[in-house]
């Protein structure tokens, strides 16, 4: 394995690891885990942007790239779910009502939000 390919594999694998840890933190409502992922993600994103590859690297790199994409999709989906939960939580507390120019509430009540309070 060439040095460039090895570096790219490491770079993609590292981003997969940090995205997986972020996903775990999002799944478990672990605030510290989410906060500790951010500086790592910042560094690794820059490294990933500099990564290079050629068609000859396909077999070695493709499994790593696929794993990274799946980890990114997972973190993104769990993040969106968190945002929706916050919206539901805000609505239940009466914090989400904002009015548009027509005087209507600009955010719709999430389904079941008012009954969501534990």
């Amino acid at each position: 394995m060439s040095t460039t390919l090895q570096e790219t594999c490491v770079s993609v694998q590292s981003i997969t690891d940090v995205l997986t840890r972020l996903g775990d933190a999002l799944a478990n409502g672990d605030l510290d885990g989410m906060l500790s992922a951010e500086p790592l993600l910042a560094d690794l994103t820059h490294a990933l942007q500099r990564a290079a590859a050629t068609p000859a690297d396909r077999a070695a790199l493709l499994p790593h790239l696929t794993a990274a994409r799946l980890a990114l999709l997972r973190a993104s989906a769990l993040g969106q779910s968190l945002a929706q939960f916050k919206h539901a939580s805000d609505y239940a507390q009466g914090l989400a009502q904002q009015y548009d120019r027509a005087g209507k509430t600009s955010q719709r009540e999430p389904s079941g939000a008012l009954r969501a309070r534990g």
Binding site: T8, V12, I15, L19, L22, L26, G29, L31, M34, L35, A37, E38, L41, A42, T45, L48, Q49, A51, A52, A53, T54, P55, D57, R58, L61, L62, L65, A68, R69, L72, A75, S76, G79, L82, A83, K86
Partner: peptide
């Protein structure tokens, strides 16, 4: 929670673009 997520999510587009580039470089 939301702020912590947003701090991470701001890198998602860049990561996605970088992965797209690598996918295209290896001919996928």
């Amino acid at each position: 929670f939301q702020r912590a997520y947003e701090a991470n999510a701001k890198y998602f587009i860049t990561v996605n673009t970088a992965l797209d580039t690598l996918f295209s470089l290896v001919g996928q």
